[in-house]
């Protein structure tokens, strides 16, 4: 144990030391230049490590991944071009189409549910006394801190299944049995994608706090005058919510929706720990991992990534446009 700690500590300090040294050297190098060049080149020295990392981990791999997606037996001596075969094989397989359909369900259901729960808590807690509001929000936000593997241990216990006749440890089955039913192996119930929905509940549980914080800030930013004016005009609470509050916080709702959507497109951990993609719960990220490691089919894995990237491009364009608009207002 002591050896382990020492080795880890040395590695950590060495890694940090090298990073600091790099900047120290770059700065010395810039200062050694004639002062006219120093001022001109220094910015590039400052951003150089950042762009080196971006090139090595984003630009080059992205290009390489696209190339791999048109190849077969990547990494083996027999590596060769196969055109669109990887894509054709994937899209032609019923299992992969199920995977795509599952992912689509996640993409539609989870962001919508997250926004709805987040908004409900934001609006309702806003009317509580300060201490109660704080307590409610802290509890809803807390799962954001926990890893999805941790969430897997939490919900694995909730969905736990023991055979008929043995005491149930999972609360969901305990309730079913107490009501006179037979215990259900929840994560294996794939009719109507029920088990996928149970996994979605886990992500909702983990992410609703994020939606709540942003939406709560927006709700508090709604001017009280507009609410009062609506009340004087005889609007009821539901009308105030849909016609006064929601339109004013619409841009935040869209932001939260898109942010959760991006996270959902890449969802991996929950499915990996709960079912490993079995019982018809597979999603694209897990299929990627299976192709990559289990099947050792890097071509197919790359093709999946390319499809994911194509799906993300519109979001990226939205992001850049948003950024430009924000800069213009600065």
């Amino acid at each position: 144990m002591l050896l382990k700690v020492t080795t880890a500590l040395i590695t950590v300090l060495a890694g940090i030391g090298v990073a600091v040294l790099l900047f120290w050297l770059l700065n010395k190098l810039a200062e050694a230049l004639p002062s006219r060049w120093e001022e001109r080149l220094k910015p590039f020295f400052y951003i150089l490590p950042a762009y080196a990392a971006i090139t090595m981990f984003l630009v080059y791999p992205a290009i390489q991944t696209v190339i791999y997606s048109f190849k077969t037996r990547v990494g083996f001596p027999a590596e060769s071009w196969t055109g669109l075969d990887n894509y054709r094989d994937l899209l032609g397989s019923p299992a992969f189409r199920d995977t795509l359909f599952n992912t689509l369900l996640w993409i539609i259901i989870v962001p919508t549910a997250t926004v709805m729960v987040g908004l409900a808590v934001a609006v309702m807690a806003d009317r509580l006394r300060e201490k109660a509001e704080r307590a409610v929000k802290t509890i809803i936000f807390m799962p954001m801190a926990i890893s999805l593997v941790g969430a897997g241990t939490v919900w694995g216990l909730v969905y736990d299944f023991r055979p008929l006749g043995t005491p149930q440890v999972g609360i969901q089955n305990a309730i079913v049995v107490a009501l006179g039913g037979d215990p259900v192996p929840w994560v294996q119930e794939s009719a109507f994608r029920f088990n996928s929905m149970l996994l979605m509940v886990m992500l909702l549980w983990a992410q609703a706090g994020f939606a709540m914080v942003l939406l709560s800030a927006a709700v508090k930013g709604v001017p009280v005058d507009t609410l009062e004016a609506a009340r004087i005009d005889g609007a009821n609470e539901a009308q105030i919510f849909t016609k006064v509050i929601v339109p004013q916080i619409w841009s935040t709702i869209v932001t939260v929706f898109v942010t959760v959507l991006i996270a959902v497109m890449k969802i991996f951990d929950i499915v990996y720990v709960m079912t490993n993609g079995n019982f018809n719960t597979n999603v694209v990220a897990n299929e990627f991992y299976a192709q990559f490691f289990t099947n050792n089919n890097q071509g197919a894995a790359s093709a999946i990534v390319v499809m994911l990237m194509i799906a993300i491009i519109p979001v990226m364009a939205y992001q850049v446009r948003n950024f430009r608009r924000e800069e213009a207002n600065r």
């Binding site: 762009y51 971006i54 992205a62 390489q64 991006i262 990559f292 990534v305 993300i312």
Partner: peptide, 23 residues
């Protein structure tokens, strides 16, 4: 400067999946 910064903004949401196989 501005173009290089736009690159950063674009990179923000690229999923790390793109890098696993090549890296």
């Amino acid at each position: 400067r501005d173009v290089l910064f736009i690159v950063v903004v674009t990179m923000l949401i690229i999923p790390n999946f793109v890098a696993f196989v090549p890296v």
